[in-house]
Every structure is written in C-alpha cells, then in structure tokens.
Design a binder for these strands. Structure first.
Length: 277
DNA sequence: GCGATTTGACCCGC
DNA sequence: GCGGGTCAAATCGC
C-alpha cells in the first residue's frame, strides 16, 4: 500500500520533470524562430537537460525498486531482501576535537540514519546512513560511521556510492584557522554553494584535524608556517585565511568530491589549485 | 502531524 | 551458522 503510493509519487515526479523539459523545449523552439539572446538559449538547454537527467535518475531508481519487489520474490516470501551489488567505497578517518562530536561529522550532505549494528569484535556500533534525497532525487549515496575503538575521538567513515544529488562546488571557499590555545590544531571552515533548489543558500561546514598529521606534506607545512599564531584578523577570527578553488571542474569531478569535507587527503589534493584571496 | 531515529527481525554471502 | 547490511514498525521530537 505504502509502496504503491510511493510508486505513484515517483511517476508523478517523472511526468512533472518530462513536462518541464517539454515546456523548456517549446520555449527554445520559439527562441530559435525569433532569435534573441544566446544566454537564454543556453539556460533553456541546460534546463531541458536537467529535467531529462532527473527523470532518468528517478526511472532508474524505480527499476531497482521494481526488481527488488518483483512478483516471484513477493510470492517466494514477504520478507526483506537486500541487493548484492558491489559498491564503490572510500574509507575516511575523522578525528574530532572535544565538544565537537556530531557536528564535525557533518559533511555538508543531508543523511538519514536507517540502521545501526553492533559489529563483531568492535566495542562501538556502526551506524548506517543514506542520502536524504534518495527518493526525491534518486541519490544512492550511503555512508557507514563507526567510532574508532583505539581512539574514541576518531570516527571511521566509509562512503559507498557517490552523491548524484549534485552539489555545485564551483564557488567553494575554504577558511583555515589555528586556535591560539591549540596551535597544532587546524580548523577548516568550508563555504559551499549547493545547487539546492529547495534551500538556495550557502552552507557552512567546519571540521578540524591535528597539525602533526600534515607535517610531512611540504605544501601544507608552508601554509602552516604562514599562519602565525600571534596575529589576529580584522574579523576577529584568529589567523584566518580564505582560499577559493580556482578549478571548479577538478573539484566537481574528483573521485573524492563527495567526501571532500571530511577527507584530509582530498583537501590536500586540492590545495595546489587554491589561490590566496 | 510529520520527519527522523531506534531497534528487532530478516536476508544474504561467506 | 555467523556476521554484516537492510527493512520497517515503533518511538521520539519538533
């Protein structure tokens, strides 16, 4: 019953997307008859492409749902089954400072917890999260979060499947700061312009890691050397430098883009394309 | 009331 | 049979 309602909802969304695409295509045809601005044409074309992309994503998700709930399987048993597809995965270790638990694990995406399991041989349970946009935009991103047994201040985060809900990182900005009282700890604030049609707003995320972890990387060491722990910026935020990504394509297409907020490696990979503001 | 989280049950691969 | 991943009903919180 609920499943049927969900299917109808999905169908409506797909039809809506296709109708939008059709509407935009009509507008484009009119524009071609009476040429005006090529910018408008381009925006119409990208609108059409987006509509069809969304429809395809929704349909592919629908197919998966149908596969899982095919009549034979339903006849066989009314019980739960899981997909056996092999997934791409990326493991990331995140250390959080005291009093920051929970917030630092926030990586800029919206996750919904769908399960928790006690793992054999581990003291801490593993949490299972999937993208909130799974059903609205067909985003299949999944992550697993488990507190490290060895270091309770560290979380092991495993990302399975990448986000298809499309974060637009073209205007991503990083802000790096060093706390006065803790000169070996680095706070990174990221300003991210998400291509979020619902919210249309910039989202800020912060996380931190220890200086020694990055000491053996020359570029990072140079950066840290330039951050004198005694100076204070005009904004009142200690030692803040703003960095902006000079290559949106390299960010957006990076295999680690989805977890760039939490993966130290990905931040460092990107560091060479940053330019000082 | 609705969306998010919790939690026990179930499924599947090894 | 065991362990890990997922589902979905129950519960919680706003």
């Amino acid at each position: 019953m609920v499943m049927k309602e969900e299917m109808l909802m999905e169908e409506k969304l797909v039809i809506n997307e296709l109708e939008q695409g059709k509407e935009l295509a009509n507008q484009l045809m009119n524009n071609l008859k009476f040429p005006s601005s090529s910018e408008l044409d381009m925006s119409l074309i990208s609108g059409i492409l987006r509509s069809y992309e969304n429809a395809i994503v929704m349909l592919s998700l629908d197919q998966k749902t149908l596969k899982r709930s095919s009549p034979e399987r339903i006849d066989q048993s009314n019980k739960k089954r899981r997909t056996s597809e092999k997934k791409m995965s990326e493991k990331v270790k995140i250390c959080v400072g005291t009093g920051q638990e929970g917030t630092s694990l926030d990586d800029g995406y919206c996750w919904r917890k769908y399960g928790q399991k006690v793992i054999h041989g581990s003291k801490n349970p593993r949490g299972y999260y999937r993208c909130t946009h799974r059903f609205t935009r067909g985003c299949l991103a999944v992550k697993q979060v488990q507190k490290s047994d060895a270091d309770p201040s560290c979380y092991e985060v495993k990302y399975l499947e990448s986000h298809t809900c499309k974060a637009n990182l073209s205007t991503t900005k990083f802000s790096v700061s060093v706390p006065k009282d803790e000169p070996k700890r680095v706070h990174v604030k990221m300003m991210l312009n998400l291509d979020d049609l619902e919210n249309k707003k910039d989202i800020f995320r912060t996380f931190s890691f220890s200086y020694p972890e990055t000491e053996n990387i020359p570029e990072w060491k140079n950066l840290m050397d330039n951050l004198s722990p005694t100076t204070t910026s005009e904004s009142g935020i200690t030692n803040e430098l703003l960095y902006t990504s000079s290559s949106s394509v390299s960010v957006a297409n990076s295999p680690t883009a989805d977890s760039c907020f939490s993966s130290l490696e990905s931040i460092l990979d990107l560091s060479h394309v940053w330019s000082l503001m």
